[in-house]
Design a protein around this nucleic acid. Sequence first.
DNA 1: GAGTTTGAAACT
DNA 2: CAGTTTCAAACTC
Length: 761
Amino acid sequence: MDVVSPELNSLLPDEIMDTEAMEKVVPSQPDGTMGVKPEPLDLTVPMETDSSSETLNICSDVAAPQPALSTDSPLTINPGASSSVSMASSMPSSIITLKPLTGPFTISAANHQIILNKVASSQATEAGRGAGTTPQIIKQDGQKLLLTAIGKSVQPFVLQLPHTGSKPVVSQAAGDAKTQTPQFKVVTIGGRTELKSIVGNAGNQMSTLQAQHLKTVQITKKTPVSSAAPIKFIVTKAVNSKGPQTSVAPVIAGRVLTQTSPLMTPRTITLTESHNTSIPGKKIAISPLKTPSKVTVVSVASPTGNTSQKSVALPVNVALGQQILTVQQATPGSPVKVVTGPSPAQNIKPVQPVAVGGVSSSQFKTIIPLATQPNVQQIQVPGSRFHYVRLVTATTASGPSTTKPMSTGAVRMSVPIVQAKTVKQMMAPKPLPSAAHVVTSPQTQQRLIMPATPLTQIQPNFANLPPGTVLAPAPGGGNMGYAVVPAQYVTQLQQNPFVTLASSSAFPPLTGVQTQARLPLNGFPAPESTSRPRKPCNCTKSQCLKLYCDCFANGEFCSNCNCNNCFNNLEHETERLKAIKTCLDRNPEAFKPKIGKGKEGESDRRHSKGCNCKRSGCLKNYCECYEAKIMCSSICKCIGCKNFEESPERKTLMHLADAAEVRVQQQTAAKTKLSSQISDLLTRTAPVMSSGGGRLPYTFVTKEVLEATCECLMEKAKRAEQTRQSQAEAERMVLEEFGHCLMRIISSAAKAKTDCDSVNC
DNA sequence: GAGTTTGAAACT
DNA sequence: CAGTTTCAAACTC
């Protein structure tokens, strides 16, 4: 599977991987003899149920360019008589193939990182011993390849490569600057992320300086024909900063491992698994879109054999489109930290994306574990109006024998969406910065850390990313899975810069909790204030999957809308993805804010495209400029525009609008005041008398008073009748008496209240 | 609330 | 790229 388009791939520098140093790997024993390792090695890596990718890190601590590695010769590892691993290079086509063979000596196609690391032979041995393993060192000149499994109690293999050309100088982190025979260490991250056991030893640990410079290359892991989709790897090459090179090797992502060697034509290094044909297609880099805006997500699953949450610091370079995704993966149960060193957070510098195809970025995108089930992975693209980007679903492994059941161990992911300079904080398995919060999903136990970094800082880098993906762990409670986080969902969910990865069962109702809060656009608030609720759409024909729909155009899911046949929701992710892609294909900036900064700063906002009004005079909300409360600019193509600074119509309209607004405010204030006065009046005029234990108003109008009043009125009526008064006069007399009664009642009430107050009753 | 107007988006 | 159609919001009655 091509993660990166050929065009993009061609743009990537060639120094991504110094494969020229890998000429030949000859299996041998530490004593230098070519032999068979007595005990079999188990490089089998626990398979993720959703394993979709593997990562291959080729880490070199050799600063100088590696000597050309001839891949003409097959690279074979024979750990035992019954099992073997071969790194066969299928040159002359310059293809290096890593072929784990049958037996326990297998390299799982799970989502584990495979690191090819050049180490000193002696130090590699120490490293292996420190990890409780016994690396098989081949003391032989030339390149050596160390094969081991992280977190597995297996013995790494060191394969010595015939030395060709000058030996590079290896500078170890521990200060060992002596010339070492470089080795390639192949590390598989197994059930436990005990990278420390491999590279973390005192004499051979992967120094933080080494970790500072990583080159990431994607390799396509080809599976046999009978297998499913090919597996892709991320090849990370660590360059020792102590080496001669002075420039920091940037991280380059998304390149298929094709390298041009000065000695040979561009070659492709391919990792294949010849032993396990049942492994389904696994892919690290997944790109739903082939366009430059595609998002490639590497799923680096981590077996969660234990539930404890030891932290991690396992930087995983992930290709996301043209950028590197660096994620921090916590490995529950791992007793040691992957990245060694007293303070990884302080020493490890983040990988630095390199400008690819003219796009330079110093920031990172977000990766979260992809769930085992694909359809609900959603991504957030901070920055643009569409604040989320959809991910490609990781293919679920279909039961390879190497798959190990996943426990419910928590997976803790630090997802930096911050600038590169802040990533080191995110990579540290330490308490998160104050700006970060970790929210744990109660069901999937996945944690996602979202930075509080303003999304506007990231926006330029996400400009081309497709919108509309939602972070959604797989239904069914998949333990693993990565997805890019929809930062907007974060806002929508909890108005918090950090998001909780809701479980599969909890996430779908997301639509019900969306608040559709908007994020700042280009550094200033969106035309519609964030406090202002989004207007519901009324789409009927567009299925809310076109830019006609404001919800869709703003990167929001429809929520509480009046639309019909709405597809802008989680239930129609596929269609939504397709629609997003279509929009982006048509206009890569379709989801960017239309109102951007002008040349003169924040206050000078203007429409990015300008309006095209013809009949409204740009003084109605039909006009997008007027709607955004900005003037039309020179880029507008409007006819009869009256939306300019000196326009009398505009001024009049503004005055009227202001007057109307003032009037509304006054009315509102008046209503509020009147309501308050009425309430206060009722409170003050209501007698507070005890009557049967209750506070009854107008207590003086009691039954007795009422009866007495009626008797008075009846007596008055009788008297009028006796005196033979007319009907009208009789009514008048009765009414007068009623008035007198009321006056006496009021007078009595007032007197009683006064008396009550005087006695403080 | 129904109908009309409007201009952006989509389409050709 | 221009012209036309579609669409949904804005607007009017």
